[in-house]
Computed example of a mutant assay.
Amino acid sequence: MPVADPTLDLERQLHGDGARFVIGCDEVGRGAIAGPVAVGMSVVGPGVGAQPTGLRDSKMLSEKRRESLAPLAQEWSLHSAVGLATAAEVDTFGIMVALGLAGKRALASLHESGASIMNCVVLLDGSFDWLTPALSSPPRVRTQVKADRDCASVAAASVISKVHRDRLMIAADDSLPGYGWKGNKGYGSAEHFAAIASLGATELHRHTWLRSRGRNGDFVKD
Score class of each variant (00 low, 15 high):
9 D>S: 06
204 L>A: 12
213 R>T: 03
217 G>P: 09
71 P>Q: 13
109 S>A: 15
185 K>Q: 10
155 A>V: 13
174 D>K: 14
88 A>W: 00
141 V>C: 07
15 H>C: 09
212 S>M: 05
71 P>V: 04
23 I>P: 09
74 Q>R: 15
187 Y>I: 02
129 D>W: 07
144 Q>V: 13
19 A>P: 04
15 H>R: 12
78 L>W: 08
8 L>M: 11
36 P>V: 11
149 R>N: 11
219 F>V: 12
111 H>W: 08
198 S>Q: 15
206 R>L: 06
38 A>Q: 03
143 T>Y: 01
199 L>Y: 10
50 A>H: 08
69 L>N: 01
47 G>S: 06
173 D>H: 10
100 G>H: 06
164 H>W: 12
222 D>K: 07
183 G>E: 08
159 V>P: 04
140 R>D: 08
117 I>F: 04
72 L>R: 15
139 P>L: 14
47 G>N: 11
66 R>G: 01
140 R>N: 12
176 L>S: 13
198 S>K: 15
191 E>W: 04
69 L>I: 10
66 R>E: 03
167 R>L: 02
177 P>A: 11
133 P>E: 07
71 P>R: 12
145 V>Y: 05
14 L>M: 04
180 G>T: 04
108 A>H: 06
87 A>S: 12
24 G>E: 02
59 K>I: 07
62 S>V: 07
202 T>K: 06
137 S>R: 13
113 S>F: 07
166 D>Y: 00
117 I>S: 05
162 K>E: 00
151 C>R: 09
118 M>D: 14
63 E>D: 13
108 A>D: 12
12 R>N: 05
192 H>F: 12
110 L>A: 08
17 D>C: 06
42 S>A: 14
101 L>D: 01
127 S>L: 14
113 S>E: 11
76 W>Y: 07
135 L>F: 04
96 M>H: 14
211 R>C: 08
179 Y>G: 05
145 V>N: 08
171 A>D: 14
79 H>W: 15
210 L>P: 02
7 T>D: 04
217 G>Y: 12
46 P>W: 00
149 R>W: 10
146 K>H: 05
195 A>S: 10
108 A>P: 00
188 G>Y: 06
172 A>Q: 14
217 G>H: 12
99 L>T: 06
152 A>I: 10
207 H>G: 00
176 L>V: 14
217 G>F: 10
26 D>T: 11
145 V>M: 07
14 L>Y: 03
2 P>Q: 12
120 C>G: 00
191 E>S: 13
119 N>M: 02
203 E>Y: 05
47 G>L: 06
66 R>Q: 03
165 R>W: 00
3 V>T: 14
209 W>Y: 08
63 E>I: 13
68 S>F: 01
180 G>S: 09
90 V>Y: 01
36 P>H: 11
180 G>V: 12
125 D>Y: 04
